[in-house]
Design a protein around this nucleic acid. Sequence first.
DNA 1: ACACTATAATACTTTTTAGTAAGTTATTGC
DNA 2: GCAATAACTTACTAAAAAGTATTATAGTGT
Lengths: 112, 112
Amino acid sequence: MLIINYLNYFFMKINCPLNYTMTLIGTKWKPLVLFHLLEGASRSGVLQKKVPEISNKMFTQTVRELEKDGLISRKVYPVVPPKVEYKLTKRGESLEGILRSLDKWGVEDCKN
Amino acid sequence: MLIINYLNYFFMKINCPLNYTMTLIGTKWKPLVLFHLLEGASRSGVLQKKVPEISNKMFTQTVRELEKDGLISRKVYPVVPPKVEYKLTKRGESLEGILRSLDKWGVEDCKN
DNA sequence: ACACTATAATACTTTTTAGTAAGTTATTGC
DNA sequence: GCAATAACTTACTAAAAAGTATTATAGTGT
């Protein structure tokens, strides 16, 4: 199963850039979280409040996956209570064009 | 349930353009189908073959939803065997920027 | 001792999305 | 009268994504 995912990943990367991109950001919450991080680094709780409808579980899951895929980075400050900061990596920043065009399209479409 | 979807739709449209856009194109196959239609109108079978991995069912379901949302139009020629052509509407065409940036990002990311 | 904090994990359920396989239609050409 | 055609539908199953509710951690202030 793992090997199949692995092969599938490279197959798509080469043959279908668009779908490849979608596998990295095509979930309900990923684009939103990334979009808010365009404003700059944010600590966990603050970022989560920017997406008020997201559940605790989905927030954690979303940032975990974004981190695993190298789109955001996670910095833990060894204090109590804990402090965690997320920010876009270079790779994540390169999504800015996509994120802004998704947002802009929604705004424009709303006018009709 | 229907009324809730309806309200939710307008809520999102106003409050979260990015997510609103994603509800229209954020499935496994929609972006790909739309992307291929950027080349111009295409009849059903031809379009489906451009997305070779898609199942018959998902193809129909995908174009049905895109049509319902006014992103593509469907023209039936009254011949036998049937001939059906799909093409982007104006609204669908306005997604070009998003679709190309999704594709381009995948291509660029592949280089790393 | 105990509540409070910010962050996160886990178990479990529900909902949504996608896949498989088979059937339908209505005419043409043999 | 039967196969071939293009487009589509339906019933059923499987997999993925998302939601709910509960619990964990570990030091601080009372």
